[in-house]
Design a protein around this nucleic acid. Structure first.
Lengths: 344, 344
DNA sequence: TTTTAGCACTCTCGTGTGGAGAGTGCTAAA
DNA sequence: TTTAGCACTCTCCACACGAGAGTGCTAAAA
């Protein structure tokens, strides 16, 4: 059994993947020699194709059809043949510019990132909001609305804003609420949920009540594996020929739509290391619904402070080069933004 | 030409719709008499079916197939035959309870509403966040992060929270920022964007700068036809047989995914009147992508203050009764919540 | 006038057949 | 080791055929 692929086998595998990705049609020995002017005959190519199939890098839909890469084939392509890819300079500039224009507008970042990622990688994009490893209190404001109903606005370190309603047993005016907010802000600044819990008993009764609520919000935030998920580009990807028949589309739609499924995939496939990129091809045996899909997943943010995930979903026959470079570049941009938010 | 349907025609149309919705199969005269024990022969039913087809309420996929309702048929069914429908008491109780449990947790309302609506109506659900007709300033807080970077948290009347980063030309400490916030809060409380613009020139330079930013945020908020759109249940609906072949699924996915398309449909189809429900069947000729889909749309909130939209999307062969009653009931629940938020 | 029985007619659907075309796998020679 | 040549296999398309489902029509019955 041959261990390593010969250089010519590597080249042919490379061409098969590129040609198939582009044409969506199983590729034959003849197209290969004609289209790429290899100086060898189709019979030779056929021998090599047969060898590559024996080794598990390619398959046959049926005897008299061309070759199609297997997940193993794609994997080898991504790991060994793709090389270092980067988005062209003008695209990087355009993307940076779009983020720059939205630099202040916090609420826009995530949808913008999803939209740019989808367009750049030509796939369906997923972005989760940055999530601190452990949330820390930054600022709180109690705002009177009507009667005994109060709006609590809690800002966590990193800029996450949470809101909650609370019902007072007796009405308090804005003046009193602001004073209580100020007291809490002085005492709790920079603390985690458990640190706050440790000193609740030192607070006056009303403030203690509010602090309990705050602890609840922070614990709930920390318990969630990922915040909101932003999506884009699903409908474009569903037009790809492999999804025209419902069956294969299911997996794709489930990753994009079902939160629990996405979280399971992320938890399983995504290393917590910021900057690393993981390519999951054809579900890797574990996710049968994703047999026809590949995912390119990355993590952005600042390790130890806050991180989020972003990814591209497409058919196994996807533009891995674009997807990987897009995920890498955009995750870099987002990491910088998170860094700015957390440095202090 | 016959103007009104005879009672028997009404009954037969009713049965055809119900049977087809349930079985997904074109319904024949024989199934009708057998399944529902009409006291008449299949030949008589066939005559009536032919008449209903002539009048445009039913069609034929082909000569020797059973009947399928046309959009006109569904429309008549919804308008005249469905009657007043309401969710069973225990479902209403369950739903009310779920909302009650999330009563304080503002951020949960919309995803919860989408999820409940999808499950109850057995369709794909869309919910837009309540959007005030004109936003009014309620509260602002400037929070120092690092150096000259400041987080601006703006609360609008009705509880909408917006955040924005700003870069100072010279650093200010939290003390100074809080004082500026307090001054702005006293001067701007309850004002609209244009009212704030009218008195910017009376403010000291730093506060004026912040006020300009606030105006920008508020104007952007008011310009958006709808806030964030919350979705749920798409993948379930896509399993319906009519969407198994890609073509028809496109329209459904576009409504759910493409913001601009959804906004166009909402603007066109949805009356601004709170509480009214609009049923859009088969795209009504205007939206060809929705040929195979129906929408049940409603508006909730408090007219003149803030309203949002919610809707169910499904195949034309959808459970109109459930969908309409679910939209009505949930829009009632949401309206109450909005009312609480705005009453002051 | 309305309803019904009966029957011919039409259309789908599954299956089978045959020919064209694409592409391979193998063999034997270069 | 490479290559030319050729048989073989499989898909795809078109066509045909019979079974089955359901209608539309006609003529008789209520």
């Amino acid at each position: 059994m041959q261990e390593e692929l010969t250089p010519r086998q590597q080249m042919i595998l490379n061409l098969v993947v590129r040609e198939y990705v582009q044409s969506t049609v199983p590729v034959s020995s003849r197209t290969l020699v004609e289209r790429y002017g290899l100086g060898i005959s189709s019979a030779t190519v056929r021998n090599e194709l047969a060898r590559l199939e024996e080794l598990g890098y390619l398959t046959h839909p049926h005897t008299s059809a061309g070759r199609v890469p297997t997940p193993k084939g794609y994997n080898h392509f991504v790991e060994r043949l793709l090389g270092e890819v980067e988005l062209p300079l003008h695209e990087r500039r355009t993307i940076a510019h779009q983020f720059y224009q939205a630099r202040g507008d916090f609420d826009q970042w995530m949808p913008l990132a999803a939209s740019i990622l989808a367009r750049t990688a030509r796939g369906a994009a997923l972005v989760t909001a940055p999530q601190p490893e452990q949330s820390r209190y930054k600022h709180l404001q109690l705002i009177a609305t009507q009667g005994r109903l109060v709006l609590l606005v809690l800002v966590l370190r990193g800029g996450t804003v949470k809101q909650q309603m609370l019902n007072l047993t007796e009405p308090l005016d804005q003046q009193a609420l602001s004073e209580a907010s100020d007291r809490l802000n002085q005492l709790l600044s920079g603390l985690t949920a458990s640190e706050i819990a440790a000193r609740v008993h030192t607070l006056p009764p009303f403030e203690a009540n509010v602090a309990e609520l705050v602890i609840g919000i922070m614990e709930r935030t920390d318990a969630r594996p990922a915040g909101t998920v932003y999506r884009d580009g699903l409908s474009e990807v569903l037009q790809e020929p492999e999804f025209s028949e419902g069956e294969h589309a299911q997996g794709l739609i489930r990753v994009m739509e079902e939160r629990s499924f996405l979280e399971a995939v992320l938890a399983d496939a995504l290393s917590p290391e910021v900057g690393s990129i993981r390519v999951l091809i054809g579900g890797e045996g574990r996710w049968d619904e994703l047999r026809a899909c590949s995912l390119v997943l990355g993590r952005y943010g600042v390790a130890g402070f806050a991180t989020g995930a972003l990814g591209v979903v497409g058919p196994t026959r996807m533009l891995y080069g674009r997807a990987i470079s897009a995920v890498r570049f955009i995750s870099g941009v987002l990491s910088e933004m998170v860094y700015e938010m957390y440095a202090e």
